[in-house]
Design a protein around this nucleic acid. Sequence first.
DNA 1: CAGCAACGCTAGCGGTGCTAGAATTCCGGT
DNA 2: ACCGGAATTCTAGCACCGCTAGCGTTGCTG
Lengths: 190, 190
Amino acid sequence: MSTQVRRERERAERERAIVAAARDLALAEGWDAVTTRRLAAEIEYSQPVLYSHFRGKDAIMAAVAVEGFAELATALASARASAADPRQAVADVAAAYVAFAEQRPALYDAMFTLAVDLPFASQGVPTDLARGFAELAETVRPAAGDNDLETFTETFWSGLHGLVTLMRSGRLRRAGHEQRLAVLVRRFSH
Amino acid sequence: MSTQVRRERERAERERAIVAAARDLALAEGWDAVTTRRLAAEIEYSQPVLYSHFRGKDAIMAAVAVEGFAELATALASARASAADPRQAVADVAAAYVAFAEQRPALYDAMFTLAVDLPFASQGVPTDLARGFAELAETVRPAAGDNDLETFTETFWSGLHGLVTLMRSGRLRRAGHEQRLAVLVRRFSH
DNA sequence: CAGCAACGCTAGCGGTGCTAGAATTCCGGT
DNA sequence: ACCGGAATTCTAGCACCGCTAGCGTTGCTG
């Protein structure tokens, strides 16, 4: 009886180890370096074990992405909470968003570029993603005016996402980064 | 003497066939379906022939992307030229940009998501990309105000790019598409 | 017409994600 | 204490990927 409990605990721990290994490997060497063989070696089990936890490699990446959503939401909340005033909050939250994406590129990729088939309509995933979205929404609320807040927030979010992705793919001059962010923030501050 | 000319012409034609096959296959079934084996079969040559034209699969995708830059620039120029007034031009060009990305998702991916190592600093590629960028810049010029035009344009572009990519990865409600575009356009119109 | 150079092909390398089926381990009841 | 059976893990392999070495053929050139 208690043995079964222990085995489930060990199993859960191994699952966490898989996600952690995938995350660490992706952050260190990019997602191309994350292969099922390396992952298996990392957790010191054979390949097929991965498939008793996840449907496939995509599902592992999705699990990493879910962790990322939680972290992003926390980072945004922290930035908003410590802002001097609502006006400054937009700039601070925007900076926090961009910093998150720049410091954890692999994580950001898993969340928004790869792993398209996340269970968005299901539970768990939307929770943390919605948390981050809600932070953005509260931040830009004073500037929304007549606009529908959700629509307004999505547009602001798109601006941030565009800056981040175009920047990292080398389509934007690295120099103008601060200025572009300032332009975006200013456009969504009143 | 003229035989050599003919062979070079045939060779150039084959190269065009490779790019065309890659493009068609990507548009029809996505880039995952574009393998060197299928490409070789499509042009009725063996695999190694591809490597006498391109350094590798990435280079083929880059060639497709270059075609895309030219098309996008043309689409934007056309939209701007036929706009009733400068105010309307922003909306029309934005709509044209989004329409381009939606109607040729694989092409857009090659241009902005995949194929990171395009020769940006070289000739040829920047020409058409810069043409598209210049169209965007001229479109938003009246609204730039004190802002540096290049920075302002890049920020607007990021907004469009963010809308397109978040939309297609399912992170945005498909319903609010028009409204979000309207919000962005309005923010970059004065 | 002979010789040679350029060309395109066959075959194969090391890698990928994933899986069937054998082998092992470990638990529970007698 | 031990043995039968179920659960779990591993070995081995499939089909495919991008890419390349080296052979065979073709076709131009002197």
